[in-house]
Amino acid sequence: MLGRTNSVTWRGGLLKVAALAMAMAASASVAQAAPELQGAWRIDKPTVSLKPVQGEIPFTAKGRALYAANRAARAKGDFSYDLTQRRCSSPGPSRLMLTADRFRIMRLPTQVTLQFEWNRLYRHVDMRGGKLDEPLIGPMMGLSTGRWDGDVLVITTQYISELTLLDALIPHSDALKLTERLKLVDADTLEDRITVEDPATFTRPWDASITYRREAEGGFREDVCLDRLEAGQRPLPVQ
């Protein structure tokens, strides 16, 4: 193998030369914007459910059937629909925003990072203003881009693996798109207003809202979900 090259042959136009053009204008706006979002946050009213701000979740027939099946399975303690509860697999972005543990918001010039105490997960939000290309397989966390709308951090997430749920029960297809608006209600209160769009699962977009309280933070614990799972605990609260 000495001398064997690491050449990769590509068919068609697969290989693109990575000529990164950093949008320094975009990064400049990040550098100035709303530093107060930074810090540690904890959900105000712990819940496992993403609730619409008004009315009921507008399921399609297919969405409703899948949701009902998940609900029925959960009632029997059957979590075959829930890879997080079975294996500690990543819960995906919206379910993680419901965490009962803390998360912190940190930023670098062209990226916002939401880091979660739960199982040391994180979300990367690309602030460079580029277009998202569809991956061959979407990751559990999806791919997120963000921008500032005044003091509001707007995060768009797509390509979220169908192996995740929106919360403890709500299914989604790979067409799911989440748009989040994160803003300070006051100095110590953060709201995440989430718009859920998925024509395969819902008849129209719908909004949920999650409120967090700021916490003075002295570091997260080292949470290892697999250890809890092996000790016979559920990775996440069930209800």
Binding site: L83, S89, L108, P109, Q111, M140, L143, L163, L226
Partner: peptide
Amino acid sequence: RPDQQTFLEYNCEEQAGD
């Protein structure tokens, strides 16, 4: 390497949780 800012997902629990 600031250009490596978006990490790939490392969801080893999907395997190790089995």
